[in-house]
Write a protein that binds this DNA or RNA. Structure first.
Length: 686
DNA sequence: GAGCACTGC
């Protein structure tokens, strides 16, 4: 099982780790309590960014848009807002904003900066994320917030007038909200040139960003500032020949590292849970043959499906004389940072969501990573000392990788973002300046859906209900259902169902014997009408019995997910109150409730077929019920259902079903369909 | 009888 790697040494293309990408914002480590301000100061001055302070402040003074390129640990996320504060950018009640794509990053960075500034968190330095606003309207000068929250703020204050400077961080990740904000901020700067925009990215795509912001009539509109970083060298090794089974290969390579290489932990990148479990099985089978002198191995899995406690296990310090092998999904590429990794094994693939606007189906596809992504993965080996990255593909395969993963905006349904842009007055979507435009077909699909659901009128402008729905933080169909609950007098229940369909994986069914017990627990919530009412039952039982963690674990429910549903329900309730929607109960009248569901899901109707599958009303597509549905083994009496979502896996699957009467589809759908684009449900009803 | 990368409002 000898390793056959070609080692190009540090001069190979993979060693260009100055491109390694990741935010210092992800490192969750606040300064220890009681540290003196003086030592905080000297720590700040030692950061690589410190010597660029004058240049940065000069650029912010002179240019409108500053594109900052800097890598891990250079301090841009924590220091740049402080430099601006110290230079007076937050005078006269102005606020300096810094956005993050993730909630944990926003909170942890704010905590650290509050400490450095000597502020109580939420006072001079604060953060705003969904469900949590730790900031003061009067006193906060530096505000860290998720990019989604800043986007939402544009709906209320389109010029973002309270900010003097806005830093959009982690731009290389290209989240939908980051992209939308970049387009909007370019527009805002035309109306408010005093606003300073700092665009921070860890990859060298700075020139395309510069082109995006550069203005032909003002040479001083945008500039690039490059920061040096502190990255330890990472040697990169490739396979001589491609492997047909990278999971097995990953196990072999990790095993050989343990036998041949000096101490240091190993991080293996695979694409999903199944692969991770297979790799760990292979390794644990090999453990019996581990030589006496070799370090013991601590085998750990890391993926988003694990509970918080299980995820935290990867941070445990291994016993002396043993090393960690962490087998992870992409979660370790940007979201979770583990120190002490000296060896990275990269399979070269990643699972990404793709969206097909023609079929409106989304699916998860396993695709080769990008140069940016594999560079990022390699960089995980050089955080605390020099390291090695073993790529389970050839060097020529690396060279043929795309430079970056396509931005999310090209891979998702754009219905909700387009409704929100319309609400912001962006009426002509073709004229909106996208950093990367979504596919035309995606835009057309979204517009068609918005017209069909009455959110946009025939003139292309928002209707009154469209205006209100654009403010609600749920997808359009679910919002529509909330609004229609007034007619069906079931606001209480619809509110709960809306929250429960928004969260995912409510039921926890482990493998094996325990799974059978969990399955029995889950059945206690079953409503014969279908999954929406089953979710309603689960929620009501959860709140009735105190909403505790121990109750959840005894009833096959995820406490984390249920708590999130409670928060979302509370937030949606505020919107309902604002729009004067009554919170009545249907008093157990499930028929009314199901009719109301149809008002949201009328485009997702399906008819039962004799072989147990369904045919979609739109498009006549063969649909398979997801096995977690209570209607998985049972024919609905009426033969008709609506469903929450449909996804392409090996087959086309539908999830969260409820039995309905077919004429309800006509009652709700037909009216709206005929107003919008003609799309007859015709023959199926003949 | 199946299986799920990761965020975010």
């Amino acid at each position: 099982m000898a390793l056959r790697f070609w080692k190009p040494g540090t001069a190979g293309p993979g060693s260009s780790l100055d491109r390694a990408t990741e935010s210092e914002g992800n490192i969750v480590s606040a300064s220890p309590a009681g540290i003196s301000q003086l030592s905080v100061q000297s720590q700040r001055e030692r950061l690589p960014i410190a010597k660029h302070r004058q240049k940065l402040l000069y650029s912010v003074e002179k240019y409108g848009v500053i594109i900052v390129v800097g890598q891990t640990g250079c301090g841009k996320t924590t220091q740049l807002p402080q430099y601006l504060l110290e230079a007076g950018w937050a005078a006269d009640g102005n606020v300096i904003a810094c956005t993050q794509p993730r909630r944990v990053a926003a909170t942890s960075v704010a905590t650290r900066v509050a400490n450095e500034v000597g502020s109580l968190l939420g006072d001079e330095v604060g953060y705003t994320i969904r469900f949590e606003d730790v900031s003061s309207k009067e006193r906060t000068r530096i505000l860290y917030l998720t990019d989604g929250m800043l986007f939402r703020e544009t709906l209320i204050d389109p010029l973002l007038s309270r900010y003097s400077a806005i830093m959009i961080d982690e731009v290389h990740e290209r989240s939908v909200y980051t992209d939308l904000l970049l387009g909007l901020l370019k527009k805002i700067r035309r109306k408010r040139p005093s606003l300073r925009l700092i665009v921070s990215s860890a990859t060298l795509d700075a020139n395309s960003l510069l082109n995006f912001f550069q203005s032909p009539d003002n040479p001083d509109e945008a500039t690039i500032v490059s920061l040096e970083g502190r990255m330890y060298p990472v040697e990169v090794a490739y396979l001589n020949e491609p492997t047909s089974d990278y999971v097995r290969k990953a196990a072999e390579v990790a095993w050989n590292i343990n036998l041949q290489q000096p101490s240091g932990d190993i991080l293996v990148f695979l694409t999903g849970r199944e692969e991770i479990e297979r790799c760990l099985e292979e390794l644990s089978e090999m453990l019996a043959t581990l030589p006496k002198h070799a370090p013991r191995l601590l085998l750990l899995a890391l993926h988003a499906g694990l509970s918080t406690n299980e995820q935290l296990r990867v941070f445990e310090t291994p016993e002396k004389g043993s090393r960690r092998v962490i087998v992870s999904t992409n979660i370790a590429e940007a979201s979770v940072t583990i120190d002490g990794i000296k060896y990275v094994v990269d399979c070269g693939f990643v699972k990404i969501r793709t969206y097909n606007p023609t079929t409106t189906l989304s699916s998860l596809a396993t695709v080769p990573t990008s140069i940016a992504s594999s560079t990022q993965r390699a960089g995980r080996a050089g955080r605390t000392s020099s390291g090695v990255c073993y790529r389970l593909y050839t060097m020529s395969a690396f060279e043929s990788l795309p430079p970056a993963t396509p931005p999310e905006i090209t891979r998702v349904d754009m219905t909700t973002p387009i409704l929100q842009l319309k609400s912001l007055g962006v009426d002509d979507l073709m004229k909106f300046e996208w950093v990367t435009a979504p596919p035309a077909e995606t835009v057309l699909r979204a517009l068609e859906g918005l017209i069909a659901s009455g959110m946009i009128g025939e003139d292309g402008r928002l209707t009154p209900i469209g205006e209100q729905v654009s403010e609600c933080p749920v997808e359009v169909g679910v919002a529509r259902m909330l609004f229609r609950s007034k007619e069906f007098k079931c606001g209480q229940e619809i509110l709960t169902i809306a929250a429960m369909t928004t969260v995912q994986d409510v039921f926890v069914i482990p493998d094996g014997a325990q799974g059978a017990i969990a399955e029995l627990e889950r059945r206690k919530f079953t409503a014969e009408e279908g999954d929406h009412l089953t979710l309603l039952n689960a929620y009501n039982a959860f709140t009735k019995y105190g909403g505790t963690k121990s109750w959840c674990s005894g009833h096959a429910l995820s406490f984390r997910t249920m708590s999130r549903a409670v928060s979302i329900r509370a937030q949606l309730k505020k919107y309902m109150q604002r729009f004067n929607l009554p919170l009545e109960s249907c008093q157990g009248d499930a028929k009314r409730l199901r009719e109301c569901l149809v008002s949201g899901y009328w485009r997702n109707g399906a008819r039962w077929m004799a072989d147990g599958t369904y045919k979609s009303v739109r498009g006549n597509k063969i649909l398979h019920v997801h096995p977690t549905s209570v209607l998985f083994t049972r024919k609905p009496r009426s033969g008709w259902v609506i469903f929450h979502e449909m996804e392409e896996t090996k087959k086309t699957q539908i999830r969260i079903l409820t039995e309905i009467e077919p004429d309800w589809l006509l009652d709700h759908g037909h009216v709206y369909e005929s107003k919008g684009k003609q799309e007859s449900m015709g023959p199926q009803f003949g």
